[in-house]
């Protein structure tokens, strides 16, 4: 625990780089997430065939696609360490918080990459128009960060359980629900014409405070999950 903060940051970043490298060898998470996003957006687009959707539906569908695509890829982050028996090496390498920070960084990058695929696809295939870009991206940024924090933590929990796939969705959904509700409502406002940034103040406040709570809890409780 007594490592200096700069040493911990270096270790977290090298864990992140290691994950990036191993991801590019197999491309499992990238492929799963990208395919899921593409398939779902196409399925929606095919079903509505050019008829416009209401902003409520567009905002909800966008977040449903982001949420379920992230589930398909992010579940692996700790499972693969347990399966390849490298978890013990990681435990020796750095304290639990550092491991969590490194994994979180990787999942954040993965999730922002997912957003980079999903948003243009949505804009092209589902006539999707944003009125206030600053608001839209603020909500997207905070919402995705919260999503990454919760899914990283739940991924650590399920790596110890026996049935992994289904459990990941079951465990993460209740914890994500407050984020999804507020993010959908904020995105809806960002897509409505003539709305000021301040109109979604409540959504941003709730999202931010929930994010802070989840970050603090994850760093506090991760050690109990990881070192057991």
């Amino acid at each position: 625990m007594a490592t200096s903060s700069s040493g911990s940051a270096t270790k977290a970043i090298s864990l992140f780089l290691k994950d990036i490298k191993s991801e590019f060898r197999t491309r499992y998470a990238i492929n799963a997430i990208a395919m899921f996003a593409v398939v779902t957006v196409f399925a929606i687009s095919f079903a509505i065939k050019g008829t416009g959707l209401s902003t409520e539906l567009q905002a909800s569908l966008l977040w449903i696609v982001i949420y379920f695509s992230s589930l398909s890829g992010l579940a692996q982050s700790f499972v693969k360490e347990e399966e390849s028996k490298t978890a013990m090496a990681l435990r020796l390498y750095a304290p639990a918080e550092v491991i969590f920070a490194g994994k979180l960084l990787f999942n954040l990058v993965l999730l922002f990459g997912l957003n980079l695929i999903t948003i243009p696809l949505f804009a092209i295939f589902i006539s999707f128009e944003v009125a206030s870009y600053p608001l839209f991206f603020a909500i997207l940024l905070i919402g995705s960060t919260g999503l990454a924090v919760v899914t990283t933590f739940v991924a650590a929990i399920i790596s110890k359980a026996s049935v992994k796939g289904a459990l990941f969705a079951v465990l993460s959904f209740p914890l994500i629900l407050p984020l999804l509700v507020e993010a959908i409502s904020g995105t809806k406002k960002a897509m409505t014409d003539g709305i000021a940034f301040g109109a979604a103040r409540m959504e941003i406040q709730v999202l931010l405070s929930y994010l802070v709570i989840m970050v603090v809890l994850s760093f506090l409780l991760f050690e109990a999950v990881w070192n057991d």
């Binding site: 026996s162 459990l167 209740p174 914890l175 809890l217 109990a224 999950v225 057991d228």
Partner: peptide
């Protein structure tokens, strides 16, 4: 979800540990 987690972990200590963590998380949410 808490009970689903409990039924998915077979080792009693592991189960107690994980479900305690999840219940703190869930109750705070």
């Amino acid at each position: 979800a808490y009970f689903a987690l409990r039924s998915a972990v077979s080792d009693p200590d592991q189960r107690a540990n994980l479900s305690a963590v999840y219940s703190i998380f869930g109750f705070v949410a």
